[in-house]
Structures are given as C-alpha cells and as structure tokens.
Design a protein around this nucleic acid. Structure first.
Lengths: 352, 352
DNA sequence: ATGAAAGCGCTAACAC
DNA sequence: GTGTTAGCGCTTTCAT
C-alpha cells in the first residue's frame, strides 16, 4: 500500500507479480496465522521454544500462502542453506559423478547446491569463490582447484570449505578429500609388471614443474615408487603433454613413432588416454599387443566397446558424498582438518 | 564492538574472521573515504551524480580495504548481478558449450552465472529454480527443462527468463532460443536420400507421447516432413528407446538384427547414436556400407576417429550467447517475447 | 511460550 | 554533487 505509486517501474512490484496482492513475506504469514514474525521465524528454523499448536498453525499458513523464505534476507543474519560447488571445468566426465554424490548427501540435510564453472582459469575461479562468499553461502566444495594453498587458506578463513582432487594434507583450515593417487598409479604399474611389461612409461600433464598439489603429480610420485619397487627405476620415464589440446596430436604422434616406444603406458587421465588409443589404433597398432594402456577416471567413453580402455576408477560419487559430509560437520562447528584418501580400483579392459 | 560477546558462536564474527577488526561493509568504506554510504553506493553502481574526485577517493578506499559488496544485501533492494543457469543434467556433452557461450556474454556485462543441476528430475528442477529466485538472482536461463509451459510461465512471472532447447514459440512471458530442430532432421534425411537411401528410420527418445515441446519431438516432425517431401512417407518409421539406459542395449540389438533393418538411421542424439555405432560395429556391420548413421549434437566423442559419427551440429556456444543477450535485454526492461531458431549444420563423417 | 524491536548491508528517495 | 534516512525480509536478543 505504500510502494505502489503508479509510476513505479521496479520489477518485483509492477511487472513480475501476479496482479493481485503483494509479495508473500514472513509478515504476511505472521498476519495470516495471527502470530508474531518471531514465531514464524522459529518455526522455519525448527528453533527451540514453540508449542506444537502454534507450529501446526504456522505451517498451515505457510502452505496456504505458498510462502518461501528469501535466501538473500536470511543470509544477512543466519544461514542460507545453500552451498557452492566450484568445478575446474565442466567438460571432464569425472565431475558429474562428484556433483551427484554431493547432491545426494546435501539434499537429505535440507541444503541446496549451486555450481560455478572455473573454466580452468584461475582469476575466474577466485572471483566465483568470492561471489559465492558474497552470496552468503554456508560452505564451499572446490573440485580440483588450480590455486595455491595460500589462496585456499585465505578463502577458508572466510567460509567453511572442503577441497576435492587437490593434495594439501597439511592444511589446517580446510579438509581435503582425495583418491589415493599414488597408490592408484602403483596399481597400474603392478598390473603391467604382472603381465610381463618392463618398459612402462607414464604420460602426465605438463604443469611447468609447479603444482605439487595436483593429482597428476601424486600419480607421478606413485609411478616412480612402484617402478623402483619393481626394480625398474632405470626404465622409468615420464612423457609430458601440454595443457592446451593444440599440440597434443603431434606430441602423441612423436611418442608413438619413436624408436624407443614403450610397451606400456600409464596415462594420468582418460582424456589423454582415449586420444592415445585413437591415434595408436589409427596407426595400425594392436592394443595391447603392440602397446598396453591404462587410463585414469574410468569415464563412460573408456567403457565403450570401440574404445575399451582399461582405467583406474576413483569413485567420484563417493568422493563427492564424503566431501559433503565433511562440509556439513564443518559448518556445524568442527575445526580440526581431515584429509582422508580413498583407494581406487583397476577396471581391466581390452587395452591392458 | 557490540556483537563480540565472549560466548558468541556465530561463524562470521568469532570463528572465520581474521583476528583483527570486523567485517568490511559499505560503512567501513564510507568512513575510510570520509564520505557518506550513499556516495559509496553510487560509485559501486556507476550511478549518475558523483564527482570524479569523490569517485577516485572511494575507489582507493575500496581497494585498500579490499571491500566487496554483499550480494545478499544488494539483493534485498537492487540487483545481484548474478544469473542462474539450470541444466537438465550435467553429463550431456552438449551442455558445456552452452554454458561457455553464456559465460562469455555475461562476463563482459559484469554478471556472474551460478548453475543448478536438475538431474533429469522435475521436482528438483522446480526447487532449484525457486532457490535461484529466493537468492534474488537477476534472471534465469533454463536449458532443456522438462516442465510444462504452464510451470515455465509461472516462474517467468517472477523473474526474467530465457529457455534453451525447449520449443514454446507461443510463450509470451519468456524467450526461447532453439536450434531449428525440424530443419536439422530434414537435412539429415536429405543427406541420406542424396546417397541413395530409401529405407531411412529415425531413433527417438520415448517420452510417453507427451512433451510436444521437446527437441526430440521437433526432430521427429522434421523427419516425417522430409520423408514425405522425398516421396518416402510409406517408409517412414520411428523407433523409440526408453529413457533409462537399462534396456537400451537390448532394444538396439533387436533393431540391428531385425529382418527389416533400415539402411540408414537418423538418431535424435549422439548419446544414443554412439551406442548404436558401437553395437553395430561390434556385430560386424560395416558403416556406412550395411548401415549409415547420423547423430545430433556433434559431441566430442562423435569426432573421435574410432567412432567417426556424422552428426548435426547445433552450435551450443551460439545458443548460449544468444540466450545471455536475450536475458540481458529482458532484465533491462524488454517485455515482448522472442523465439529465434538457429540453423544447424551437418558434419559429415565416416558413418554417413 | 510468545512477541517487540533492533539490526544485518545495502539501495533509493529525498533533502540540502 | 553529496548526505540523511527509510526500508528490503529475515534472525535474534530480550522482555513479557
């Protein structure tokens, strides 16, 4: 009755709202139920100190008016019951599973998840995180972030946070949930050794020597350790592929045609392994006769009969649900950091 | 100085904040710059009526204090500069491109996008949309939503909205951006006819006869029209596959071994087409000798040499950027609905 | 057990 | 051009 001047052009009141009536707020509900706004608020949050009758009463009004609390307004004082998930990028087939696992846990706890896509771009990642903090989200789950431990710490000081796919086992401000990447690499190496291979190479992403926190680096460490244990230290070698997809074809061509081509390749990710399988077969190589390959992530495409790529499965769904559970306990007050590792499994297929 | 009782357990003030000082708000900045909060607010929004000196002054303070406005608080009166994107599901390889296109346009306009994943589940979709509205987002882009036009209208009344991959050309409350799906289907049929095929089948998703708004339905319409134009109405037939992946293998097996197996198949999506290619080759069929196949979406996997699936490309990036542009003009006041169609292109590969 | 009232951080009238 | 101030819808003391 006060903000309805004829000239009012504000969206909510003039254009969007159905003709009749104003927006339903906590006050509308309170009036309808004949109680105070404080009472309604308490019912909303299942807070202590409301009689069952009042509760029923308020619930009925909420239902009748189809009232929904404004998350924005809630965020100004209490919780928003919304958490943010930051993904490095959206195209990696491993990520949907993680999101799925997170959602499953969150939904039963009454939380909702909103995602941000970092696009493999650090400044964007940081600005999305800030945006999520500014939205007053209750917590954050970061998946394979590119930033430094310092930056992560900086954000963790502002909001409860759990990180997946980024090794930082000494961090005290946030939790990390990871696949045991070095164990996974070792399992791949063992599988090759068992089948008689000695010339086993690893293909890893070139991160310019930095990023000791990346999953790729942990897999490389595991590879070297396993090669050593098998007495193959002198045969151990890592072939690096550049970040962008541009030169990958040529690099792989060089690798596959080199005189010292290995008999087995452990590849840091299915993304590259699938490309490798395609190029190798395209050149007439027999898999695994001429070359055995194991990838990482057990993505859908790897399972296609025409690809048939053996791969390490790190159970993204489980990683996601563990992260969500960790975040919830962190939101409700836990301070001590946790850094569990999950053992991956080998999915043997024709390429092995 | 007032909300720092020793027993205070609220996260923001007691646990998360760095030891020194309180949260930086617009008031902190105003005090630091020696101006009013209104002045700061105006600088923040590039509003009319601030002197250049004051502006510089405020910007310096903002920088110095590394202040960021609270989206939640902004949302209570003005804009949040955040828009929501709702995806049916996250696994479809076509979606990343769309998101990419949206982001590109939004970022230059100073907006951020947050995603919700519907998981092919209508109630979840609806609750995510409500959550986005409750977060006071400035607008919504829905990608291939499953809900009815009525439900969409209901939401569009509450928030500026643009829909991708859902045909509703008579909608007045929101825009739709689509590939010209019937034209795409016709192009596929023509390509087959040109190559001498007469027994051309379409494979479509079974939606229980409903969903006349789905892209699959439009493609089916285009298929029938094109078959009629080619004088092949009597040969036209559509083979339906169930929604879940469970029975798909068996269905495709039946299709591929049937005595009246077609010589060419136009498949509503790469997702199914890729599976079809795998099963057909696995049975020893020659592609395209024994069977020609065209998919839809031109996904990455289709382009792999070992798959080599011809496919209709609907340029997801373009769809995304058009949607973002439409949303921005809608946010700034446009009321008339727009329903543009984008012509897809055929990417010919070995399966054709 | 219930309610009144003081903010939360911002925007937008409206004064000056 | 700049400042004052009244809310936005909610949570949370603190009375009652």
């Amino acid at each position: 009755m006060k903000n309805q001047e004829p000239g009012d052009l504000s969206r909510m009141s003039d254009i969007k709202q159905p003709a009749r009536g104003e927006r339903v707020t906590i006050r509308t509900v309170a009036a309808d139920a004949g109680v105070s706004v404080a009472a309604v608020s308490k019912v909303l949050r299942n807070a202590y100190g409301v009689s069952e009758t009042l509760r029923q009463n308020v619930m009925a009004s909420i239902e009748r008016l189809s009232y929904r609390p404004s998350v924005a307004a809630r965020g100004m004082r209490g919780q928003t019951y919304t958490i943010g998930i930051l993904l490095v990028e959206i195209a990696n087939p491993f990520l949907p599973e993680v999101v799925d696992g997170v959602d499953k846990v969150l939904s039963v706890a009454g939380y909702k998840a909103l995602l941000g896509i970092g696009d493999s771009n650090m400044p964007l990642e940081a600005s999305l995180i800030e945006s999520m903090i500014d939205n007053r989200m209750d917590g954050l789950i970061l998946v394979a972030p590119r930033m430094s431990g310092e930056t992560l710490d900086h954000f963790a000081r502002q909001i409860p946070m759990v990180v997946i796919g980024h090794h930082e086992s000494t961090a005290t401000g946030f939790d990390t949930i990871n696949s045991d990447d070095s164990a996974g690499a070792a399992m791949a190496v063992h599988a090759f050794v068992e089948r008689g291979h000695r010339d086993i190479m690893m293909v890893n992403l070139d991160n310019g020597g930095e990023q000791h926190t990346s999953v790729g680096h942990r897999r490389e460490v595991g590879y070297y350790e396993a090669m050593a244990k098998a007495g193959l230290s002198d045969r151990a070698r890592v072939f690096y592929v550049p970040q962008g997809p541009e030169w990958r074809d040529a690099r792989f061509y060089d690798l596959l045609t080199a005189p010292d081509r290995p008999s087995a390749i452990f590849c840091w990710s299915d993304l590259d392994a699938i490309q490798l399988v395609n190029q190798a077969r395209g050149m007439g190589l027999d898999l695994p006769g001429d070359l055995a390959i194991i990838g990482y992530d057990n993505s859908r495409v790897a399972a296609l009969p025409l690809i048939n790529l053996a791969s390490m499965d790190q159970d993204g769904r489980k990683l996601g649900s563990m992260a969500a559970e960790a975040l919830l306990t962190r939101i409700s007050g836990r301070r001590k950091a946790e850094h569990p590792l999950l053992l991956p499994t080998l999915v043997a297929r024709a390429s092995l």
